[in-house]
Amino acid sequence: MTAHQAVAEDLVDRVIEEYFERRIERAERLGPPAAALWRRAAASARGGKRLRPRLVLLAHDALGGSDSGAAAVAAAAFEVLHSALLLHDDVLDGDLVRRGRPNLAGEFATDALVDGVGTPEATAWGSASGLLAGDLLLSGVHALIARIDSPARAELSELVDDAVFLTAVGEHADVGFSLGVMPAEAGGIRRMMEQKTAAYSFAAPLRAGAVLAGADRESADALWRIGTSLGLLYQLRDDVLGVFGAEACTGKSAMGDLREGKRTLLVAFAEAEPAWLEVAHLFGRRSLANHDAERLRAALVSCGAVASVEALIAEQLAQVERDIAASGLPESLRGELGGIARMCVERDA
């Protein structure tokens, strides 16, 4: 990381911290519960890879952008958006842990249990708190974008709206696949991955940086396409880590996707295979035991599903690298995007 990049990322962190400080101060005047909600929302936004802000800044700087303040605010907005969507995702999945520690819903549920509230009520309290905190942060994303003093502000606002629109469509499909109310064929799962993850995590941040830099439409469109491909690559690896990853690295249990019955390409490739059919009754079992989870993992390996996904990851990486090389983007940006593509494949968290 260059000194300039370090300064820019520090500025993003300051924007985020200032955003939460002001909200916490305001919430404190409304009483302890409101303050606790905002403090925990702020805590949920700390840490992580800061990937989305990095993509905004990368595109902005490489394409000749000069408004570092506006870029920092836009980058912060995408990180707050990420935090909002993670809060909602945890509620939808019924997860109480995130990044190896109790998430916001888990903390509120634990407080209620300690106070003697019954388990169903405590769980509902945690879920409601996670949902409302996510709502507040979604509103905050638009408040941050509104602060940007740039002719690009209206386009940025539309870009964020499009990203949230696509993410909601993808999340809805993801839940539908897991519950069995929507047919989970490979093409639909791939579209869901592009909508749920790629749009807001890669395509929109890269395009936002280009928009703020005043880049031409061709460059902005190329970054959206490349970002979508990077997001798919990232999610493919994420789905493998969700079943085979080490919890110490990922911060999430490798049991969650199996217990939830999460319909990924890994499962789609396995479904017609005899080895998977023998254990398929265990998939989606909320009380799934460790030894049964190992049976599911072994079946995914033995039936060739893992090998098929790894082959798809290699194919996707090669395609992304070809698209980056042919994009006409500045050489420095192409190099950075190539490094991000390899990171998506090689990461263990």
Rank of each mutant, 00 (worst) to 15 (best):
S68Q: 10
R217S: 15
A318N: 10
L81H: 05
A341R: 10
I324P: 02
A70G: 14
G335D: 00
D174W: 08
M192C: 12
R217V: 09
D257N: 10
E25A: 14
L86D: 00
A75Q: 07
D161G: 07
L232P: 07
G116E: 02
M182V: 11
E310N: 13
P183V: 13
A305V: 06
E171G: 13
G261M: 04
H172E: 10
A307T: 11
E121S: 14
R26E: 13
G188E: 09
A77R: 00
F20Q: 07
V243Y: 04
G176V: 03
A3V: 08
A36G: 05
L206C: 09
H60K: 09
V164E: 10
A213N: 00
F177Q: 08
L265I: 08
V7Q: 13
E17L: 14
A143Q: 10
A8M: 13
A71L: 12
L57Q: 11
A168T: 10
A27N: 05
L266S: 04
V211H: 12
P53D: 04
Y19E: 08
A199R: 09
I226L: 14
R29Q: 12
G256E: 13
R322P: 03
R297L: 02
A268Q: 15
A27W: 11
G338N: 05
H291P: 00
A6G: 00
R147Q: 12
A293V: 05
G126K: 05
E321Q: 14
E194Y: 01
I313N: 01
A36L: 04
L51R: 09
R225H: 11
A307Q: 14
A210G: 15
G214H: 06
A71V: 03
K196P: 05
P151V: 07
G187S: 15
A75Y: 00
A146M: 02
A84R: 03
G118P: 03
L51G: 02
G231Y: 03
R14N: 10
G338S: 14
R26C: 06
H172Q: 08
V12T: 11
S150H: 15
G65D: 04
L159P: 00
L296W: 07
D93M: 13
R295K: 15
A77M: 10
A143H: 09
P151D: 09
A59L: 09
L329E: 00
E9M: 15
L144I: 04
A204Q: 05
A34S: 08
R237E: 01
A318S: 10
G130I: 06
F244V: 07
L337R: 01
A325L: 11
A128S: 13
A8W: 12
H291L: 11
H172T: 12
L337G: 10
A318C: 00
L206R: 12
G261N: 06
V211R: 14
G69A: 07
H60Q: 09
A84F: 12
G256I: 14
S150E: 00
A311I: 01
A105H: 06
T264F: 06
A76P: 04
E278F: 03
R207P: 00
G284T: 06
R263L: 01
A246L: 15
A298T: 00
D90S: 01
G69P: 04
